[in-house]
Amino acid sequence: MNKPSNTADMVLHPVRLGIIQGLLGGRRLTTAQIAEELPEVTPATLYRHISTLTQAGILEVVGQQRIRGAVERTYALRIEASELSPEELNSMTEEQHRQAFTSFVAGLLRNFDRYVEQADGVDLVRDGVGYRQTAVWLTDEEFGKLAEGFRSAILPYADNPASPERTRRLITSIVMPSA
């Protein structure tokens, strides 16, 4: 595996993106727990990508304990280190954007598949699951206000700790101009 040259190469690889998505929401997971989130990834591949993300400062070790002679590490995401700068986004080729979007959508599909395969059944209304598309006509200024409104609405909840009363919910947005 070639060493990624920038944040885009680092985080937009399908396996690494899956690891990052699994840690969103302040989750702290061991390698074994990450492996449960990505059962299609072999252990050797998973360890290699976790190591790559840790060396890059995107993951941090937040705990470790000895289990049967081996050290089990617990990881957390350093969200600020995983974000792409505007310069990095602008320097990506069309093909790199296509690959990145495909990896992103594959992660969404993986999460949805896990949801519909739950043992306790699927109830979109009970679980607050929805997917829809809406078209709106906006100036750049209006779009900026809309985007800031989304951020302002979500930000107060972004650092909620996990608890038995809370359900981890993935809020995904995809915004693009219509052709």
Rank of each mutant, 00 (worst) to 15 (best):
M1H: 07
M1N: 08
N2S: 14
P4G: 11
S5A: 09
S5M: 10
A8V: 00
M10L: 15
L12D: 04
P14G: 04
P14Y: 04
L17W: 05
L17N: 01
G18L: 04
G18Y: 03
I20C: 02
L23Y: 00
G26L: 05
R28S: 02
R28M: 01
A32Q: 13
Q33N: 05
I34M: 02
A35R: 06
A35P: 01
E37A: 09
L38P: 01
V41K: 01
T42E: 09
P43Y: 03
P43T: 02
L46V: 12
L46Q: 05
R48G: 03
R48E: 13
H49Y: 13
T52K: 14
T52I: 15
T52Q: 15
T52H: 11
T54K: 12
Q55T: 13
A56I: 01
L59G: 03
E60W: 00
V62G: 01
Q64L: 11
R66C: 07
R66Y: 07
I67S: 10
A70S: 14
E72F: 03
E72T: 02
T74S: 04
T74E: 06
L77W: 00
R78I: 02
I79T: 04
E80S: 03
E80H: 02
E83I: 04
E83T: 04
L84G: 07
P86M: 03
E87I: 06
E87L: 11
L89A: 02
N90S: 14
T93H: 09
E94C: 08
E95T: 07
H97T: 02
R98F: 08
R98T: 12
A100R: 00
A100E: 04
F101N: 10
A106P: 05
A106G: 08
R110D: 13
R114P: 03
Y115N: 10
Y115P: 00
V116H: 12
E117D: 15
A119K: 14
D120F: 04
L124V: 12
L124W: 03
L124C: 14
G128Q: 08
G130L: 12
Y131F: 12
Y131C: 12
Q133I: 12
Q133K: 07
Q133F: 10
T134C: 07
A135Y: 03
V136K: 10
W137I: 10
W137Q: 11
W137K: 09
L138C: 02
T139D: 05
D140I: 06
E141P: 02
E141D: 08
G144V: 09
K145D: 13
L146W: 15
L146A: 14
A147R: 14
A147M: 11
E148Q: 01
R151L: 09
I154Q: 12
I154N: 08
P156Q: 10
P156G: 08
Y157H: 13
S163D: 15
S163E: 15
P164W: 09
E165I: 11
E165W: 02
E165T: 10
R168F: 06
R169C: 11
I171E: 15
S173I: 11
S173N: 11
I174H: 14
